[in-house]
Design a binder for these strands. Structure first.
Length: 459
RNA sequence: GUGGGAGUAGCUCAACUGGCAGAGCACCGGACUGUGGCUCCGGACGUUGUGGGUUCGAUUCCCAUCUCCCACCCCA
């Protein structure tokens, strides 16, 4: 049996109703903040992620699905054709190998499945010169992302993110702390609207490039004399990425970590002011948050505001969404100055957090039409068409079914009404409409059926 | 990538020291030819995750492998 590959899964009904709920709620909320949808390709050039997310990050260095693109080739050699000329499949490997561009073609292109979507959005921003449009670009996306990690609950190789970016020239106000606060307030609103209880917003500022450099040096210096006493992971981090020492959960290391310098002490004046302005707006609009100066993010492009919304009951993967500001990203990708702030929601994790409250979302049919006896399928189909045009959700049986079976099926499917279409009904022009909740049945003229079904619960 | 646990019917789970692979729910049909939910009767349910090995005989023991779960790591 062929199965879904590791870390991927099929989303089936009724759970898909929950996914639709999450996505449509997000769209509605984003709409009220004037964000608009962008869709970028799932495949991008590998370079894009190396230059944005960062070559040394785990995501890029060991978690990406990437490959070398095929060199230019002769199409025919790659395809096996049937006698009629239709393509039936790829050519055998030997045939393909022969047609690979020989020496001379030094153009090697490496492609990757996107591990996140901010890079793609910023790439599109630059490629389509979106800075020429008025104001700050406020864009959101919903879609699959790919990381080759070991799967676990709330962590899949193909996972789904709902994210948004507010990006634009500084003159449009893209750098304003109000953008940060607006995005955070939007997220609080979204989580509330989704019915997610007990979320926590953790907030930090990781400073700008200058702050980071001096802080990094200070941190390395402070770690030097103490790292020998720390856990193996921390000793490694102290060299490779000192910031990550703050992620350490080993109890023995905590007293040491407590005494390390904090980024907050190294923020320059503009960063400091920016951060406190963000907090002031958050307080003004009543969004609760916790400062966490140990919050560091694993993508190189983050600057200044960094945040995470967490939720208990998600196990080790307790981050439901994360994001931050990325003021230098556009330039790093060869674009103009375009500060921005964005986030990505782990849709899989939101769905997980909502799982208990899921049941009620499935919407069964309003009416199940039971054609009864030879020739009744035609009549049933005509009626179904009429009712559906009135916006009613209709399911159809088959004239070969015994009435008992039809009613049983209707009731199992959760339909509110069963509509019997038999010889008697068609001749008399009135149809037996049975409310499956109460068991009450009435004879209803054709013209009144839609109205009767729509008036719903009343019997 | 590292460590640990688990894989048996669609689902939830049984099967003693190695001896015919089972139950409940769900599904299908009948009792009941145009009236569901209740009841009764019947049916289909499976290469016991996969591949090897030991054995007269393996769901059970051994090896390998795959997948999921938990933790680490990392992140959403």
């Amino acid at each position: 049996m062929i199965k879904a590959i590791r870390g991927t899964r099929d989303l089936l009904p009724p759970e898909t109703a929950l996914w639709n709920f999450v996505e449509s709620t997000a769209r509605e909320v984003f709409r009220t903040y004037n964000f608009q949808e962008i869709r970028t390709p799932i495949i991008e050039e590998l370079q894009l992620f190396q230059r944005s997310v960062g070559e040394e990050t785990d995501i890029v260095s060991k978690e990406m699905f990437s490959w070398e693109d095929r060199p230019s080739l002769k199409r025919e050699a790659y395809e096996v054709k049937s006698p009629e000329g239709t393509i039936v499949g790829p050519a055998p490997a030997e045939a393909r190998a022969e047609t690979k561009t020989p020496a001379g073609s030094t153009q090697r292109t490496y492609l990757a499945l996107r591990p996140e979507n901010t890079a793609g959005v910023v790439r599109a921003y630059i490629e389509h010169k979106l800075w020429d449009r008025p104001g700050v670009q406020k864009l959101y996306y919903i879609g699959p992302q790919f990381r080759r990690e070991r799967p676990q609950k709330g962590r899949y190789r193909q996972f789904y993110q709902i994210g948004a970016e507010a990006i634009g020239p500084p003159t449009a106000g893209s750098e304003s702390p109000l953008r940060d606060a607006e995005v955070l307030e939007m997220l609080a609103t979204l989580l509330d609207r989704l019915g997610i209880k007990n979320w926590t917003l953790e907030l930090n500022s990781v400073g700008c490039a200058n702050d980071r450099a001096s802080y990094d040096a200070a941190l390395r210096q402070a770690l030097e004399p103490v790292k020998a006493r720390m856990c193996a992971d921390c000793q490694r981090r102290a060299v490779t990425n000192p910031l990550r020492v703050f992620d350490c959960k080993v109890p023995e290391d905590q007293p040491i970590i407590e005494k390390l310098p904090r980024i907050s002490q190294y923020l320059d004046e503009p960063c400091r002011q920016h951060f406190s302005a963000v907090q002031e707006v958050l307080k003004a609009v009543g969004v609760p948050f916790m400062l966490n100066d140990r919050l560091v993010r694993g993508l190189d492009y983050y600057t200044r505001t960094a945040f995470e919304f967490t939720h208990g009951a998600l196990g080790a993967q307790n981050a439901i969404l994360g994001g931050g500001r990325y003021d230098g990203l556009s330039e790093a990708l060869g674009g103009p100055q375009a500060p921005g702030i964005g986030f990505a929601i782990g849709e899989d994790r939101v769905v997980l957090a909502l799982q208990e409250t899921a049941g009620q979302l499935a919407k069964p049919a309003d009416v199940y039409i039971a054609p009864l006896g030879a020739g009744m399928n035609r009549e049933a189909a005509r009626l179904a068409r009429e009712l559906r045009q009135a916006g009613i959700v209709v399911d159809l049986g088959d004239e070969s079914f015994r009435l008992k079976k039809s009613l049983e099926t209707a009731s199992k499917l959760g339909a509110r009404f069963a509509l019997i279409v038999g010889e008697n009904e068609v001749q008399g022009g009135t149809f037996a409409l049975k409310h499956l909740g109460t068991g009450q049945q009435q004879s209803v003229p054709r013209s009144e059926l839609a109205g009767r079904i729509q008036s719903g619960e009343q019997k």
